[in-house]
């Protein structure tokens, strides 16, 4: 039983990152209607910026994290403007190719400028606690709490502030939003900035526990897509719930079942669910 709870704890921690990353992705996917395949790579860039701020410029963990979020927000806006906006009215597959281009540029630049080797962000909270037989490090607990706070703040932003409600309005009905005078392009920029900034936050939070490397975002980006689609594109609760569920499933699956086939379960589940509900679990019906 102790083993089981330890795995649940591991899974919740993992799920927290998934939830934040998927949340950012679902905003972009739902509003701009484009699959931002470079999301995982922007996540990676966020971790690298935090790393360099801390090791080269002597920033503290929290100030580096916030600066990295701001930087990634700006980079996100730039990418939206350069890579995606010109393709707004074209088939999805064109934005997809464009995203592949952006992914290649991001990953290769990091390798060229900073080398292919993995790097380590010094852990600000390395201590451990043991509760009911479950070992938890402070940093892992921090990730869980911070993810929770971040998700909560985002919810308030979207539901209670004017810029936030315009985002939701565009997500629900693009044409309608335009009719009532919302500047859709500005909303796009804002959404992209929020999306990439949250990815940077997630990356910076887990970086001290793990390792950063130029390829750290590739698999995560793909998983985020699985989560977003399962949860329904544009559905915020779907993304959050999906993130936690996938994290816990992976922890339990990886612990009890074959680790080699772990990703087969997640991806297989996606195919299965889409065949039953072609627009995802919580997705809107498409006419």
């Amino acid at each position: 039983m102790q083993l089981f709870f330890q795995q649940i704890f591991n899974g919740v921690m993992l799920g927290s990152t998934y939830a934040i990353v998927a949340l950012g992705l679902t905003l972009v996917f739902g509003i701009l209607q484009i699959p931002n395949f470079a999301h995982g790579h922007l996540y990676m860039l966020g971790a690298y910026i935090t790393f360099f701020l801390m090791t080269l410029y002597g920033f503290g963990f929290w100030s580096a994290l916030v600066t990295s979020m701001v930087a990634l927000g700006l980079i996100g806006m730039l990418i939206e403007r350069v890579v995606y906006r010109p393709l707004q009215d074209r088939p999805h597959i064109n934005s997809f190719i464009s995203a592949v281009g952006a992914m290649i540029i991001l990953e290769t630049s990091v390798i060229v400028f900073w080398g292919p080797q993995g790097r380590r962000i010094p852990n600000p909270y390395p201590d451990m606690v043991e509760l009911f037989g479950i070992t938890m490090s402070h940093q892992r607990l921090l990730v869980i709490v911070a993810a929770f706070v971040l998700i909560f703040l985002l919810q308030i932003f979207i539901k209670k502030t004017t810029p936030g409600t315009t985002i939701e309005a565009v997500a629900q009905n693009r044409e309608g939003a335009m009719l009532v005078g919302i500047n859709v392009n500005r909303v796009s920029s804002l959404t992209f900035a929020i999306s990439t900034a949250t990815a940077a936050a997630a990356a910076s939070l887990v970086a001290p526990i793990f390792m950063i490397s130029p390829t750290m975002g590739a698999l995560l980006g793909m998983k985020a897509f699985v989560i977003v689609i399962l949860g329904g594109v544009g559905s915020i609760p779907g993304a959050i719930l999906g993130g936690y569920i996938l994290g816990i499933l992976e922890a339990i699956g990886g612990g009890y079942l074959s680790a080699a086939y772990k990703d087969v379960y997640a991806f297989g589940a996606l195919i299965l669910i889409l065949s039953i509900r072609p627009t995802g679990l919580f997705g809107k019906e498409v006419s």
């Binding site: 795995q7 591991n10 993992l14 526990i209 793990f210 922890a251 612990g255």
Partner: peptide, 10 residues
């Protein structure tokens, strides 16, 4: 991957 806690725990 970077989180090995699940296989390690097991």
């Amino acid at each position: 991957e970077t989180d090995f806690s699940a296989p390690l725990t097991a």
